[in-house]
Design a protein around this nucleic acid. Structure first.
Lengths: 342, 342
DNA sequence: ATCCCATAAGTAAACGTTTACACAAGAAAT
DNA sequence: ATTTCTTGTGTAAACGTTTACTTATGGGAT
């Protein structure tokens, strides 16, 4: 019963291999009579085509692979919805691979595996890989098409979807200024990551452009993880020239900053405004403060576009003009920002 | 540069196909000399083995597929972590396929596709499929191994991991009784789903066993979706014989029940205790009430076990003894239950 | 009557691997 | 001196499809 092949079907229905194939793929000419015979055989045997053989000769799989780390992280909510929606609208199968944390070994494994023709295209979010590692696993000139999200790796010529973190931070500061703030501090994240640096630069550029001074102690660098945002906020609150607004490098940090302010007996946002940036890494503890005013990344759109663009390129057959798009962010007004009460 | 094959490598390094294969798979005898030559050719060409050809002849892919609906749903948090952790510990690749909502068409598509030898085993969560649909896509006697989670479909002989919803609901009632409650109501969910019916039966059985009466109006049936939990709770509160505790069919319902109680000016849990059941379907609105006391499903364990069990069976080669496990739940004491204040 | 085209069906060659088998040479054991 | 074992290499047959090519038949247009 197991592993029925096209050959069995041919024997069973008394036709040739080619005819069976034609019936199954509804392609080419075949008479009603033989067609019926073959279909009956398919029914009887529970035949299911072998995808390996099929894709070996067709040199395509009609599938797209997606590699991310920590698929379970709520951060991926919107991105995943984008992937899923796009997947539902196209005829390609979309398969996800997830690796834990910074497990680059596994990431390489999956990238190599998928690049071996398991899928026709691969989209990859982030990646802690270096250019060389990347090239070792995937060849940009191979027959599989690549799409990188939030990863502007240089040596690898392929499709790229990026988020304008500089503009995002810049607009956050503008927004705070629009509310009347001038004493604006920044808690910046891990200074070895490009996102962090971009957001820091956006903050600095906006301050400079608008003629605002980054006062003494206004630049707080996170040590360890986001929980340290609590301590950093405490430092800011202890300043003589206490800021009236704090822009944080991401929402996780911001949530701890809010907690610190509330614990210090301040009201948020009346006494101090706090702003985050849409990067909700998974918080083990439930956040109970006011909803964060934040800078939102268009992750749904990016997820959707990544799949859709790839599908388009695959359909055309040749993908020599890699796409490169930079997405702007948007401010979401919620409960942690208001004008300064002075 | 694209699509280098083993043949190219053989030509380039002046050896036979077999030798190249042996070098690449580090299998069989091959001299240092030739090995070096081949490896150099691999390096130069950026060769990557074609997985389709490989799995065609080996009749295995060393991968396991997972099909779920709404992968983005936070409900899957623990389940996904279980899958991921197991995936990281075994040598198999794990690939996820996600379909939107109740899109059985897509689910069938993926099941058929994966069953065509794209993976060696498939785990499937839930499923709105009937026996016949299931059989149409996947043959239990095929060479791919199946694992069903929370789906006790009858006509399909394969591995099954189930949750003891009856026991879960039963223990919830016992827990409430232990706190001193006797007037315990139940808001039950969609009565066409097996989960709901099981939980209802658990509630009823516990009440009967302990000699408690299900008083007039104590059984509330949800109409429409979980938001209706608000109205159902209102109905309970309007009763002359108002219950002191309410057990809800799932957490989503419970969260609306809590809101209704709070809106009615009652304190939770001092005035009324409310219990949920771990099924956190995605709530668009943020829940701000006290943390729910609830019945927790061992989803992490189930995710982990599903992959691990399959990997074990695959390694053994023959999977004729399907596994069937029923998991008990556990009560998580949080903030919505205390003794009755009478 | 001839030619061409649409329909129908079969034969056989790919696709890129792995692997069973054959063969050889040298070393070790009889 | 013969056998046996280990190491090393190559040849060719799979694996299950798709598809280019070939052949045949019956009609419609010339």
């Amino acid at each position: 019963m197991s592993n029925v092949t096209i050959k069995d079907l041919a024997k069973l229905s008394g036709v040739s291999l080619a005819t069976v194939s034609r019936v199954i793929n509804q392609k080419g000419y075949v008479s009603q009579e033989l067609s019926a015979k073959v279909l009956r055989a398919v029914e009887e045997t529970g035949y299911r085509p072998n995808q390996a053989a099929r894709s070996l000769v067709q040199r395509r799989t009609d599938s797209i692979g997606v590699i991310v780390h920590n698929l379970h992280d709520p951060f991926f909510y919107d991105l995943l919805r984008g992937f899923e929606q796009a997947a539902a609208e196209i005829s390609y199968n979309v398969l996800f691979a997830s690796v834990l944390g910074g497990d680059t070994k596994s990431k390489e494994k999956y990238l190599q595996y998928l690049s071996g023709g398991v899928v026709d295209a691969v989209v990859m979010y982030g990646s802690y890989m270096s250019d060389e590692e990347m090239l070792r696993c995937a060849s940009p000139s191979s027959s599989v098409d690549y799409m990188l999200i939030e990863n502007d790796i240089q040596g690898f010529k392929c499709n790229k979807l990026l988020i304008n973190n500089v503009q995002g931070a810049y607009s956050a500061v503008e927004y705070l200024m629009g509310k009347g703030h001038t004493d604006i501090a920044h808690i910046c994240g891990n200074p070895n990551k490009k996102v962090t640096i971009d957001r820091l630069n956006g903050y600095l550029a906006a301050m400079r452009d608008k003629g605002l001074e980054v006062q003494d102690g206004y630049l707080q660098q996170l040590s360890a993880d986001y929980r340290n945002g609590y301590a950093r906020m405490k430092s800011l609150l202890a300043l003589k020239n206490r800021p009236t607004a704090v822009f944080c490098s991401d929402d996780a940090i911001a949530s701890y900053a809010v907690r610190a302010a509330l614990d210090a007996g301040l009201r948020v946002p009346e006494d101090i405004s706090i702003m985050g940036f849409d990067f909700q890494t998974n918080l083990p503890e439930r956040y109970r403060g006011p909803d964060l005013t934040t800078v939102k990344q268009p992750l749904y759109q990016i997820g959707f576009d990544s799949i859709t663009l790839l599908a388009g390129q695959l359909k055309k057959g040749r993908f020599d003009q890699p796409e490169r798009k930079v997405y702007d962010t948007q401010i979401v007004e919620q409960e942690t920002v208001c004008g300064p009460c002075r």
